[in-house]
Simulated scan of single mutants.
Amino acid sequence: MLMVGSIVIRVDDLASQISFWTGALDYVLREPPEDDFALLQPRTGQGPNVSLDAVPSMRVLPPRIHLDLYAEDQAAEVRRLKDLGAREVQWSRKPADADYVIMEDPEGNRFCVVDAAGWPGWAGIQAT
Rank of each mutant, 00 (worst) to 15 (best):
P32S: 09
Y70N: 13
V101P: 05
R87F: 02
P56N: 08
Y27D: 04
L29R: 00
R93Y: 13
P32Q: 11
Y27C: 07
I125K: 04
M58H: 12
P63W: 04
V11S: 01
I102P: 05
L81W: 06
A86D: 09
N109R: 05
V78F: 12
P32H: 12
N109G: 07
I102N: 08
F20T: 02
M1T: 04
Y70G: 13
M58D: 09
V11I: 03
C112W: 04
L40G: 14
P32V: 12
M1F: 05
S6Q: 08
T44C: 05
L67S: 05
M58S: 11
A86I: 02
A127Q: 07
G45Y: 06
R30P: 00
G45F: 08
W91N: 14
P48N: 04
N49E: 13
R80T: 03
L29I: 04
D105V: 05
V4L: 12
L29S: 03
Y100P: 00
L69R: 09
L40D: 14
P106S: 06
W21M: 08
H66W: 10
V8T: 13
A54G: 03
P33E: 06
R87Q: 14
R59D: 02
S92E: 12
V28I: 11
G118E: 10
S6T: 13
A98R: 10
T128D: 01
A117H: 10
F20K: 00
R79E: 15
L29P: 01
K94N: 03
I125F: 09
V60F: 09
S51I: 00
P62S: 13
V11F: 03
W119E: 06
G121Q: 00
A76F: 04
P33S: 11
R30K: 14
W119K: 01
A127E: 14
H66Y: 13
T44I: 01
A123W: 00
E104Q: 14
A96G: 06
V50Q: 07
E34Y: 07
M103P: 02
A24M: 11
L52W: 05
P32I: 14
A75K: 15
G45L: 07
L40H: 09
R30W: 03
L84P: 08
M103N: 07
E31V: 08
V11W: 00
G5V: 04
V113M: 06
D73F: 07
G124C: 00
D13K: 14
E77F: 04
P32F: 11
F37N: 07
K82A: 15
P33G: 11
R87P: 02
A98H: 07
D73Y: 12
L39V: 14
N49D: 13
F37A: 04
V114L: 12
E107P: 12
G124P: 00
D115S: 12
D99L: 11
V11K: 01
I18K: 01
D36P: 01
S16T: 11
A75G: 08
I65A: 14
A76I: 03
L52G: 10
V50P: 06
L81C: 07
P106V: 02
N49A: 12
N49T: 10
E34K: 11
I65D: 08
